[in-house]
Amino acid sequence: MNRIAQGLTLVLLGAAALTSTIPTDLYLNWVKAGFGPFLIAAGVAMVLLGVLVIASELRGEDEAEEEHGHGADAEVVAAGNTVSAQESASAVERDYEEAYGRGRGTQGHDHSRAPGVAWLLLLPVLAVFVVAPPALGSYTVEATSGSSGPPPEDRRAGAFDDGVEEAAPGEVVSMDIRQFVMRAWIDEDRLLVGQEVELTGFAVPEKDGDGWYLARLQMACCAADAVVNKVYISNEPAPEADTWWTVRGTWVEPEGELSEVSQHELTALEVQEVTNPPDPYE
């Protein structure tokens, strides 16, 4: 991989990072919103570095051609008076380019050429511009169906942030699915009994059955660490997979120990399609 290719790769990679953050919100499909400014900074840095590398390479070419124009002079100088040639500023810079930029190191390891593996840096570029991967959805929920269990934030009672305790009698509490399943699994006081809640997520029809799940992925950092939170709904017909819905309903209180429950269920009172889904993760 020569220096022009390295520079262009960096520019493209930086452009991919900038494209997915500034004109579009694509990056929200992959990483937390908090990464936005860092991605912009990294994108700017890569474009800048790439442009500088390309510029230095082209400047090197220009100098070489100018030298060629005065080729005879240069050769005379080089042959006749190497010392003074080396002392002149341009020659020093050229030496630098040869020794470091394009020359060979002491181990025969060429510093100007990057290893072939660096071409792979174009894969994220391809991914952004051609595939533009969507947020994880029903496929991931189905693929991880076995891992349904208590929610990741194993907080002790008293640390809930869902507003159920503050709710006035009869008030509908709007909360994340994460907050709902955490409350359902951990709250031994079972405050959710009879409490109307409003949850928003995407639909995942049950594979063999009439019910469906209202699901949302919880992300700590990026999609690779996404964790599935879902609520089972059986008293409404299953909508199409990956459509977004807001469901108002009440918790179906399970029998027996809360920690033994394999999944939580919601009795839906009202379902409403969400036309403009929010940040896909919560």
Binding site: A17, V31, F35, L39, P124, A135, L136, Y139, C221, A223
Partner: peptide
């Protein structure tokens, strides 16, 4: 698509 999402996510999260 799920694979592409996770690959892009890992790359872009590590990039900064």
């Amino acid at each position: 698509l799920a694979w592409a999402t996770i690959f892009t996510a890992i790359s872009f999260q590590a990039l900064p």
